[in-house]
Amino acid sequence: MTYLRNICAQFGVGLDETSSDEDVHGFDCAVKYRIGSVPVQVKCTSKNFSRDTHLTMPVEDGWKEAWTGYTSGPAYFLVVRVPDTAEEWIDHAVDHQTTHRAAAYWERIDGRDIGSSIQVQRSNRFSASTLQGWYEDVLRANGVPA
């Protein structure tokens, strides 16, 4: 969640984390834009990309049920890929900086027929510019020209 929160801060939008007691819609958080929110399911893995094109992530039945009923606009699945051990993905440099060797990738999930897994494409690298695209999706969902 910290990775997503940092990118949201870079782009200048808020992030509301769903408490575990309120996770009834299958989403871990919502990216908060002025005109609306985008729900996001966030997972972390050290799995490698299959043939360098995608990550295959399992989908729980409860998520699928919740996502199938979600019709309020765009929703996304975000996977943060980290190395196998903490020593490899966090570096506390001598110049008082902390570097995270992680990257995130996303897939839009609303309106999709989801099976027992979801393939997240390597080409869908998550960054601050991704949040601009998601914002344009929110605008369109609310009938506002992007």
Rank of each mutant, 00 (worst) to 15 (best):
Q132W: 11
L55I: 01
T71A: 14
L139F: 08
V40P: 00
R101S: 12
Q132F: 10
T18H: 06
W63K: 13
W63H: 15
G115H: 12
E87D: 14
S127L: 08
T18F: 07
V31M: 11
A104K: 07
Q132I: 12
V80N: 01
F49G: 00
L78H: 06
F27N: 04
I35H: 06
S129D: 15
G143T: 04
I35S: 04
R112V: 06
T68D: 02
E65M: 04
Q121D: 12
G36D: 07
L139M: 11
K32E: 15
S129W: 14
W89L: 00
D61Y: 06
E17P: 13
T99E: 08
S72Y: 14
G26D: 02
Y105N: 09
K47V: 09
D61Q: 07
G115E: 13
L139S: 09
G62L: 01
G115D: 12
S19G: 11
G115R: 13
S46K: 01
K64S: 00
A104Q: 08
K32F: 09
S19C: 10
H96R: 12
Q121A: 13
V31A: 09
D110R: 10
P83T: 08
Y70E: 00
T85P: 07
S72E: 15
S123L: 12
G26M: 05
A104M: 09
I109D: 03
A102Y: 06
D91R: 15
V138P: 06
V40K: 00
C29H: 01
W89D: 04
T56A: 13
E60M: 09
S50Y: 06
W134L: 11
V40C: 04
I118L: 10
T98S: 13
P83R: 06
S50G: 04
G69A: 02
R101K: 14
S117G: 14
V42C: 11
V94L: 10
S117D: 15
V31C: 10
T98W: 11
V79K: 03
V31Q: 09
H25W: 12
